[in-house]
Every structure is written in structure tokens, then in C-alpha cells.
């Protein structure tokens, strides 16, 4: 459990296995909320926050209720409930957090709150929870992985938004304007990020 191990998880989640550009998760907000840099940053932080919290919550749920080796049901295998249980817990967690933020901090709510309903059932959030289990991460590792996956998502989103703001100024052929050129841009960025898969961290 040395620091280097966490470093590998962080770099891996941000660059090598970037959720958007390498695993193709969370494409919907990636295209939808990347029109403006401001909203991209807001969305990025909201996703990072939800991913961290969801990683922690789903790890606890999986370890104590579903995993036959460690659960409280005397070794009964309930892992087949993983997807549905994760979705339920993530969705209600996000709803709960939204309500709390709205009550306690209007400033934070205005910055993050409007994006929270968009990510209640986002596949990137579910993806990070499932990957934590597949990689058999510990609680702390799950938390770090969830957080850095969120940072990776933010990075991709902010890069995309910056480029799309520039694209608005460009003289693009009419049929390609809007979403089509955004998809082309996304594929080129994705190709660039595949370059990181050559990175050896062992």
C-alpha cells in the first residue's frame, strides 16, 4: 500500500483509461455540456463529486451485502444484484445530495446543482462503481479511483469545451456545423488519448 500504487491508479484513471476518451463512458454530457467552458467546468466538478461519493457508497454496499466472501448473509452470493443495486443507490444518493446542497449552500447549488439531475443515472458514474469491484479495490483505492476518474472526465470535458468555443468562430462547411464536427473532434481527441496507453507505470 505505498504511495506509488495510488499514483498508478490516479494517472491510470485520468490519462490511460480516461472514462470518456478511452472507455467511451459518459458521452452524453461530453457532447451535451461542452458548448461553453463555464458550464463544462461546473459539470466536471459535479461529476467528480458524485463519482467520489458513489465509489464510497457502492463499495460499502457491495462489500457488506453482495460479495459472498465478506457479506453478512453467511456467504450467500448476491453479486447478480450489482447493477440494479448500484443504480438505485447512486440515483438516490445524488437526489439526497442535491436536496442538502440546495438547503445549506445556495452558492454551491447554483454552481453544481443544475448539473446534478443530469448525472443521477450517468453511465460513467455507474462505470466507476463497477470498475472498483472488478479491480477488487479497497475502500481507499475505490475513493481515489472514483475521484481521479472524475478529474479525467473534467479534463476531457474542459478540453472539448475549449475547442468547441474556438470552433464556433471557424468557417465550417454547413452540413458539419454543430454536433457532426463535435463528433469528429471527439474522435480525434480520443485517438490522441490512445497514445497514453503506451505508458508503462510498473
Amino acid at each position: 500500500m505505498d504511495l506509488g500504487h495510488f499514483f498508478v491508479i490516479i494517472i491510470g484513471a485520468i490519462f490511460i483509461n480516461n472514462f470518456v476518451l478511452t472507455k467511451f463512458l459518459g458521452i452524453c454530457p461530453y457532447i451535451g455540456v461542452s458548448r461553453k467552458l463555464d458550464s463544462a467546468i461546473g459539470m466536471g466538478f459535479a461529476v467528480t463529486f458524485v463519482m467520489s461519493v458513489a465509489s464510497a457508497a457502492t463499495w460499502v454496499l457491495y462489500t457488506f451485502l453482495l460479495n459472498p466472501k465478506t457479506n453478512i448473509f453467511h456467504g450467500t452470493d448476491l453479486t447478480y444484484l450489482r447493477t440494479i443495486a448500484f443504480i438505485i443507490i447512486i440515483a438516490s444518493l445524488v437526489q439526497f445530495v442535491e436536496m442538502v446542497i440546495q438547503k445549506t449552500s445556495p452558492v454551491l447549488y447554483n454552481a453544481l446543482g443544475i448539473y446534478l439531475p443530469l448525472i443521477t443515472t450517468n453511465c460513467a458514474v455507474l462505470g466507476v462503481a463497477v470498475l472498483n469491484i472488478d479491480e477488487s479495490f479497497s475502500f481507499l483505492e475505490s475513493l481515489v479511483h472514483g475521484f481521479s476518474a472524475g478529474i479525467g472526465f473534467t479534463l476531457a470535458l474542459v478540453l472539448m469545451a475549449g475547442l468547441r468555443e474556438k470552433l464556433d468562430m471557424a468557417d465550417i462547411p454547413k452540413p458539419l456545423r454543430g454536433i457532426p464536427i463535435a463528433f469528429i473532434l471527439a474522435s480525434l481527441m480520443s485517438l490522441a488519448f490512445f497514445g497514453f496507453s503506451g505508458l508503462s507505470l510498473n
Binding site: L66, F73, T76, L81, A85, Q95, F96, M99, V100, Q102
Partner: peptide, 30 residues
């Protein structure tokens, strides 16, 4: 036991989350 525990697990999660959301919507109502 699998059937029973499934019922307990999902039912329990549903009840707990539902109750806490209901509580939150009252408690944190703006």
C-alpha cells in the same frame, strides 16, 4: 436463502433510501 436475502437486500435498500429521501425532502425543503 438466495431468494430471501435478495428480498431483504433490495427491499431494505428501497425502504431505507425511500425513507431517507422522504425525510430529506421535508427536512431540507427550500
Amino acid at each position: 436463502p438466495v431468494f430471501l436475502y435478495t428480498l431483504v437486500t433490495l427491499g431494505g435498500i428501497g425502504v431505507i433510501l425511500g425513507a431517507s429521501l422522504a425525510f430529506a425532502s421535508k427536512q431540507f425543503a427550500v
